[in-house]
Design a protein around this nucleic acid. Structure first.
Lengths: 182, 182
DNA sequence: AGTCTAACTTGCCATTGACAAGATAGCTCG
DNA sequence: CGAGCTATCTTGTCAATGGCAAGTTAGACT
């Protein structure tokens, strides 16, 4: 039932977002082309523009979706601070495409209402996760926690970490985070 | 003496790299165009190809230069571990263009000999900085230290940090790093 | 002076993002 | 039932880009 209708793809918007994630997951954000996405979805080269306006529009939608998924992942991680940090790293690795767009605001419209809202939700979960532990200034703890998990995730994704770290990013992350919150 | 010679720019290679840094510093790596760089240098649109082969070649040279500059910055930071971390963040902020390319290996040829060598030099400095402190497994300490400074720097550059953190990234970084190595 | 080579140019092509104008489908409402 | 309305998609076009090929020039070295 893929090409049943010449017009009206059915769910082009979702199909384009999914294709974008697939492309970026294997070739990085730089390899993204609206025309390629259109080809993959079997529509004309100008179809994406209708749903997203332009390339930045598509990436804006993808970033918003990403922050939603991150919030969800953090919620599912439970109450433990270390578990939350591990979940952050797990999200970055598993949803690599989303993660890479989310923290590259030059690629999309970071002031988009949907993005801002989802971003706030995820940020809140991160902060409350840390607030339960604290010790020193909770601000410092939160910032340190966010920095260490974000840094680990970013370094992992960029391939900069030495092989010695091992093949399992979440296991390694757990050890590193425990170093910050013994 | 800028346009004294129609041919033989004099130092086109350096001029192109400098222009690339300038463009990326204000508009991000996505806005980089070889033809624009050529225009800024006053040469034809194909001149850059002679020096760098292609766009990835130019970014490879820029990444290698970046790792050299990072090594230099870490060396200048002295022996203290926290100072080294602050210097890392300072480098990311001050040499934003270099930093952003360095950790995006999909943009350049990460297996380039010059890059690998410079990368090794900088990594060595980072590791010895941590080794002087240690306590637990030095591997874990090093990884945690790198993660926290890299994460802070990345978050700062992406504009994701709340305004409350203040205007001075290095001051804020010092507090955060001290949280890891009290 | 003659030759050789590195540095640059001109010209070209496929691809891309963006825009404009048109076509179609399916819904709504009389 | 059918006439119009609107969201959805298409075709056509343009300027800009990266990359390649083939020339041209400067200047170094005999």
């Amino acid at each position: 039932m893929s090409q049943s209708r010449a017009y009206h793809h059915g769910d082009l918007r979702r199909a384009l977002l999914d294709a974008a994630v697939e492309v970026m997951a294997e070739s990085g954000p730089a390899a993204l082309s609206l025309r390629d996405l259109a080809r993959r979805a079997g529509v004309s080269h100008a179809a994406p523009a209708h749903h997203f306006g332009d390339k930045a529009g598509l990436l804006t939608a993808l970033a918003a979706q990403g922050f939603e998924l991150l919030a969800e992942a953090l919620r599912d991680a439970g109450d433990d601070l270390v578990d939350t940090g591990v979940a952050y790293v797990g999200f970055a690795v598993r949803r690599r495409a989303h993660f890479e767009v989310m923290f590259r605001p030059d690629l999309y419209r970071a002031d988009d209402p949907e993005v801002v809202a989802a971003q706030a939700r995820a940020g809140e979960l991160l902060r409350t996760g840390v607030a339960r532990r604290t010790g020193r200034g909770p601000d410092v703890d939160a910032l340190a926690a966010w920095s260490i998990v974000h840094g680990f995730a970013t370094l992992w994704l960029s391939g900069a970490l030495p092989p010695r770290v091992g093949p399992d990013p979440e296991a390694a992350a757990r050890i590193v985070i425990s170093r910050l919150f013994p």
